[in-house]
Simulated assay, not measured.
Amino acid sequence: MVVICTEWESWCNSQLAGVNRPVALAQANAILNRIDLLCEIGGASLFGILLSKFDPVTCLKFAAGLMVWSLPFAVILTWLTNKLSSGVLDRPKCSQTCCRTFDDGALPDAESIVDKGVEAIKLGWKEYMQQPVLPASLAYVLLYFNIVLTPSSLMTAFLTQRGLNPSIIGGFSGLCAFMGVAATFVSVSLIKRLGILKAGATGLIFQASLLTVAVAVYWSGFLSQQSPLLFFLCMIVLSRLGHMSYDVVAAQILQTGIPSSKANLIGTTEVAVASVAESTMLGVAIIANDVSHFGYLAMLSLLSVVGSAVMYCRWLYNPTDEQRSLFSF
């Protein structure tokens, strides 16, 4: 559900702002990301306050009820958006060959449904590998291998094992979240000054550089002292600025380089591949579950970010003719 909503929002932005207006599209994507991040921060804060005053079952009931009551408002706002934009979100009419109904025959059996599902997956993978902006998409996927040097449960467990004050751990997660909001403003400024592609390279190089410093501090062996540990956390917090900036840029590259008829298919496949990458790295973390292996996991995360930056920069400096026609190299 989250994947579908994300790709639908991205496609709506490209339709409403226009792919031939890069600054307007960047601002639309930034505003959308900003709203999402603020809602996540507000929701997590509200749930934390409720959890401190009520039992978990009551909090879960409240959260479920809030989601149910918010659904009609989401439907109404979607309908209003479509009406005010003269039907820009209407689904294109399909030909008779692609829009078959089941009025003339029996309903498909389970085997045919599975076959169609497999064919859909094959089609999505084929279209994904043939897209003109594949290196930028793969660079985005590589970032999902970085599950250690991020505000996550692994980092929380590591900091707890180090005996860090819980308020500092909470402040670290909060600063990472607000850094994501700041990145939505930075990304628009970068796109205005450098263009879409160079803005993406700037975000990736910035993130890779700061995480390299963070891992170097870790391997220096001084994290037993509080000052180096706080510096280590500051590098991770600042690196989120580059990560979230590239998140906005990558969405715009996808919107610009892919036809709207294939955007949902390719975008959904990209998110699925990114989820597989994240799950794979989580499996590695489960196998290496000892805290002494944290440094090796951090090194793997760093290599994924550096590899993402290298892949993107190679694509930027060696574009194909098709990519030259899509972007102003």
Rank of each mutant, 00 (worst) to 15 (best):
D36C: 09
Y296E: 06
G87H: 10
A177N: 13
G124M: 10
N82H: 07
L84E: 05
A183N: 02
D290L: 07
S70G: 08
G124W: 03
V215G: 02
K262F: 07
I196L: 15
S245G: 04
D321Q: 12
P132R: 11
G174Y: 08
S10I: 06
L66H: 00
T269D: 02
R162E: 05
P92D: 14
G117W: 04
F329E: 10
L238I: 07
L316E: 02
S224K: 00
V3P: 10
V217D: 04
L32F: 11
L265H: 03
L194F: 12
V306N: 04
N29T: 15
T268F: 03
G174N: 12
L233R: 02
S45C: 01
M299V: 14
Q207R: 08
R100E: 15
G295W: 01
N289W: 01
G48S: 10
Y140C: 09
S227F: 00
M299P: 01
S275A: 11
G163I: 02
V215L: 11
L159K: 09
I168Y: 03
S224Q: 01
V284K: 01
T269P: 01
I205R: 06
T320L: 11
K122D: 11
A199Y: 01
L123G: 12
I266R: 08
W8Y: 11
L154M: 13
